[in-house]
Amino acid sequence: MFLNHFHFDGIAISYLLVGIVVTLLTAVYGRRTLRSKEQISRFYCTLALFCAGYGITIFSGDLKILFAGWEIMGFASFLLIILHRNITPGNTLKAFFIYRLGDVGLLLAMWASHHLWHENTTFVSLLLVMTASAQASQLPVSAWLPQAMENSSTAGNMLLATLAVQMGIFLLLRTMPLWEHQMPIRVLIALLGTAAAAMAAGMVRVQTVARRRIAYASMTHTGLIFVEVAAGFKSLALAHFAANALLRAYQLVRSQECQSPGQHVLKNSLTWEERLPKKLQYTLYMLYMKEWGMYARLSKYLRA
């Protein structure tokens, strides 16, 4: 039956609740910040499309339905990024490529799960992990989110930074039965998460642009959630996801609303980085400033 393709459980409920809050917030906020009528109507159409994709994905009972929702969502995310129709080949298209990469992973996983189910679950799991990590802006293709957020409007960013990115975690949670008995996969997920969290946590500290800061903060926490998922703490991961999503949405709104000069109080006390020896401090700063060369590398591979 048709209904068999859908599934309703705790994970779906958590994602549904967070999704409702964030999309409502985005809808209200988009109305206030977008400038032209044309953009507003474009924005709401895309928002509706995104919600449809989101809904289908979170209630999906199997990979096929999930893939359908995933595609719609990816498409809508891309439309959100280019809301102002300012397509720069180097930057905006990056997100698009990453999404496609994720799709390929998902498609392959679907195919493999049909044909290789019993022989090789590791392969399927690997593909799923790859997709999840691309979507969640984790390593190795982690640079797309900050760039996409920099180019997009705030309202669109809210959806990207909170919902779209967190779908990576959703995918992991949903497919947990597949990989939870494979230790190597769990270790891999945990390692990916730890590495991304460690890198992004440093990058948050050197950013001067609020949007990028939020993007990296979101990435840090998503990394931590990866670790939690890998450890099997499902409820903790869900709570963490909800808190992360809502906090980022709040920060994004705030970053736009009040930017008074007095907001940043000059701290006289040294941060821990500043207590490091000079050489180490400069090196680390430069490393984080250059974002570990991830940007450049990603741009290089994606250059047509």
């Binding site: 948050v204 500290r205 050197v206 950013q207 001067t208 642009v209 609020a210 800061r213 940043h264 000059l266 941060t271 980085e273 500043e274 000079k278 401090q281 400069y282 700063y285 984080y288």
Partner: peptide, 12 residues
């Protein structure tokens, strides 16, 4: 130029 916006400020 806008150092106070970052948590870890330009070290020099």
């Amino acid at each position: 130029l806008a150092p106070r916006t970052a948590a870890w400020q330009f070290p020099v």
